[in-house]
């Protein structure tokens, strides 16, 4: 809390003094590249590969945004930010937006003066335990030792959950995910708790994954999404609608492979508006009319990005769950392009 107040003060100071530039789009265009605040390294979501190219679920959104603005998905620079530096980097204008697994919370939205323009991944905190512990529900974890990363919202969620269920636990605090995994494997704790996506990735890399289970309870809501500064609504709209265009593309069955074909044959008026074949939709945001076409062509639609980076075909193997389209029982829902 103290940290967020401090950061909030900085952020507010930056806004009051008018340092955060108003027209981010103009700055980005003048600079010729998008600066995207990314994670220093999170499996499946955003991490440089062996060639130093950022890959992942979050990184793909930045690339799609660059494609929408410049028509070239490579015109994006990723600036790695840590949990401590991310919000200041955004507030001070060092990055144009953050796409790095930041949870949308009340205080970040209001106190820190940011806008969470969309939720590209609905996450939640879960538990992983060894099978031979004989536990099938998180509520049976009374008296357990739990590995937990310090200084995160997960620590507070954990305390809330155990208090609400009137059971006790002993925390084993660790600095980061790799240390947590090591402690858990070494038997220093009975359960490891973090975001469910992280748990899945950790479980996938254990030597004996079949001996570990992720408990069904999800004890918190962690809506993760792109963040922009308060006060530049045009820029926020661009980021939001680039994201929505990817979701609509999945809904309409537009993929990276068939986008040219769809563009030439489709008679669906909404698809035609989305792909810039009808109307002046892009101009309303200050972009080219084929902004969405470029964004989709960069990495494919939302579903393709999901499957390529974190989906069931990858070692991480996350199911769509809450992140399925609304038509398939999920929460991913985009307003119409009209």
């Amino acid at each position: 809390m103290k940290k967020s107040v401090l950061l909030g003060t900085f952020a507010a100071a930056a806004l009051v003094s008018g340092m955060a530039s108003a027209a981010t789009l103009d700055d980005v265009k003048a600079r010729g590249e998008l600066i995207c605040g990314s994670n220093t390294g999170l499996t499946g979501f955003g991490a440089p590969d062996a060639n130093g190219e950022y890959q992942g679920f979050d990184a793909a959104l930045c690339k799609a945004l660059a494609a929408a603005i410049f028509g070239d998905a490579s015109k994006v620079k990723f600036v790695p930010t840590t949990g401590e530096t991310r919000f200041t980097a955004l507030a001070s204008g060092e990055v144009d937006l953050l796409v790095r697994n930041s949870t949308w919370t009340y205080s970040r939205d209001n106190d820190l003066k940011f806008d969470f323009v969309a939720v590209n991944y609905y996450d939640g905190q879960g538990f992983m335990v060894k099978k031979d512990l004989g536990v099938s529900s998180a509520k049976e974890l009374d008296g357990a030792t739990v590995c937990i990363q310090t200084g995160t919202t997960t620590e507070l969620n954990l305390a809330d959950f155990f208090k609400a269920n009137n059971i006790t636990y002993t925390p084993v605090t660790v600095a980061d995910d790799s240390e947590a995994q090591r402690q858990y494997v070494a038997g220093a704790c009975d359960a490891y708790t973090t975001d469910a996506s992280g748990l899945a990735a950790s479980r996938a890399t254990l030597a004996d994954a079949e001996n570990h289970i992720i408990l069904p309870e999800i004890i918190s809501k962690e809506p993760l999404g792109p963040v922009v500064r308060h006060g530049d609504n045009q820029w926020g709209d661009i980021v939001r609608w680039v994201y929505f265009s990817l979701v609509i593309a999945e809904e309409k069955g537009i993929t990276k492979a068939n986008i040219e074909e769809v563009a030439s044959t489709s008679t669906d008026p909404e698809v035609r508006r989305l792909l810039g074949l009808e109307g002046e939709m892009g101009a309303m945001m200050g972009l080219d009319n084929n902004w969405a076409k470029n964004a989709i062509a960069a990495n494919g639609n939302y579903g393709e990005i999901f499957e390529a980076n974190i989906g069931t075909a990858t070692p991480i193997g996350l199911a769509r769950g809450l992140n399925a389209l609304w038509t398939q029982g999920g929460l991913q829902y985009a307003p119409p392009v009209r």
Binding site: L42, T43, A50, S178, S202, L206, I316
Partner: peptide
């Protein structure tokens, strides 16, 4: 701590973020 890629923590983090080497 300020997001630069030092050999000990920075590079190690990004290398471990690769699903092939995680763990």
């Amino acid at each position: 701590f300020v997001g630069l890629l030092d050999p000990l923590r920075g590079v190690t983090t990004i290398v471990r973020a690769d699903i092939n080497w995680k763990g």
